[in-house]
């Protein structure tokens, strides 16, 4: 476990360092309200990254590029189903999960039955979902979040923390339990490490892998719902920025893209690290180009800490 713990500790240390640096550069950066705000943004990213994490753990070049599209579509569907009323919240949640699992199922079937490389399948799916968004936007209004949902995401509820942070914590515990304590979790690691061996050992590899994509769709849809609650109404391509950010969060958390190794606890810290870094750059008074240059360079430096593959000399 010590090997798996190292990247998590590095990332956690960096989060603390960045908070201290932020507090020194602009006092108030590490204030409780600001920490709460950054945590909410990190939770949104972290929920998307949970699905991304599962797909990547399953190996065979597993990756889900359609998460951004699913988020936008789920936010649009949910906003219209609830249209600003608490009564519509439950049907909206169901609709969201249906949308996410359907897209995830199609991704999974394309990858397992048609043996299309995940990058290509989910990329093609992203194009389809973006097209669907344009159609939907023309036919139906953009929708509004129910007050209950907005409160869940941004108002302190239990013990001073908003519901979304409790949800994220719950997802974190559920993911840890799923990956370490269940047969399904063992199957994920086994198909990620060596699919052929897993199949010979009797693991239903196709079903398992398809389920990973379904779960990724569902997590993205839940994130889309929460993002709707965070912003109040759904706007065009609200999920676009989450596609590569979710992958980076997974890698920063110590799960290599090759799969079969890693876990979700690190990914949570990775999401936090990414959000704190972005938050710090936003508070600095530099223009957009400087921010992008620093963010890109910082990502490169962060990736140098870990996420490196082994050399040919072994």
């Amino acid at each position: 476990m010590s090997g798996a713990l190292k990247p998590i500790l590095i990332a956690a240390g960096l989060v603390v360092l960045l908070m201290i640096a932020g507090e020194m550069v602009s006092p108030g950066f590490a204030s409780p309200e600001q920490i709460l705000r950054l945590s909410i943004v990190a939770a949104l990213l972290g929920i998307v990254a949970a699905g991304q994490n599962l797909v990547i753990l399953g190996g065979r070049e597993g990756i889900d590029l359609s998460v951004g599209g699913v988020i936008s579509l789920a936010a649009l569907v949910a906003g219209n189903v609830m249209s600003g009323s608490d009564a519509g919240l439950f049907p909206a949640i169901l609709a969201c999960i249906a949308v996410g699992s359907l897209i995830g199922l199609l991704n999974g079937l394309g990858v397992t039955l048609l043996r299309i490389p995940p990058l290509v399948m989910t990329l093609g799916m992203l194009g389809v979902v973006q097209g669907l968004l344009v159609v939907a936007r023309n036919g139906i209004p953009s929708g509004r979040a129910a007050p209950m949902l907005s409160d869940f995401v941004s108002q302190p509820q239990w013990l001073g923390l908003p519901g979304i942070l409790w949800l994220w914590l719950l997802i974190g515990l559920a993911m840890a339990g799923l990956l370490n304590r269940t047969v399904f979790g063992q199957r994920i690691f086994s198909i990620g490490a060596n699919e052929g061996a897993a199949r010979l050992a009797g693991v239903p590899t196709r079903v398992t892998r398809t389920l990973l994509y379904v779960l990724s769709g569902v997590f993205s849809a839940i994130a889309g719902l929460c993002i709707l609650g965070y912003s109040g109404s759904s706007f065009a391509n609200v999920g676009g920025q989450y596609m590569l950010a979710s992958i980076i969060a997974v890698v920063l958390g110590g799960t290599p893209l090759s799969g079969g190794r890693g876990g979700y606890t690190g990914t949570m810290i990775g999401a936090l690290l990414l959000v704190v870094l972005q938050g710090l750059l936003t508070t600095l008074s530099i223009d957009e180009s400087g921010r992008q240059i620093i963010f890109g360079s910082a990502l490169i430096v962060l990736l140098l800490f870990y996420g490196r593959s082994s050399g040919l000399r072994g």
């Binding site: 992958i247 893209l257 240059i293 490169i300 990736l303 140098l304 490196r308």
Partner: peptide
């Protein structure tokens, strides 16, 4: 030896 997908995404931001 950074992973190509994430490394080239980082350089794209740069």
């Amino acid at each position: 030896r950074l992973q190509a997908i994430v490394a080239t995404f980082a350089t794209s931001v740069l």
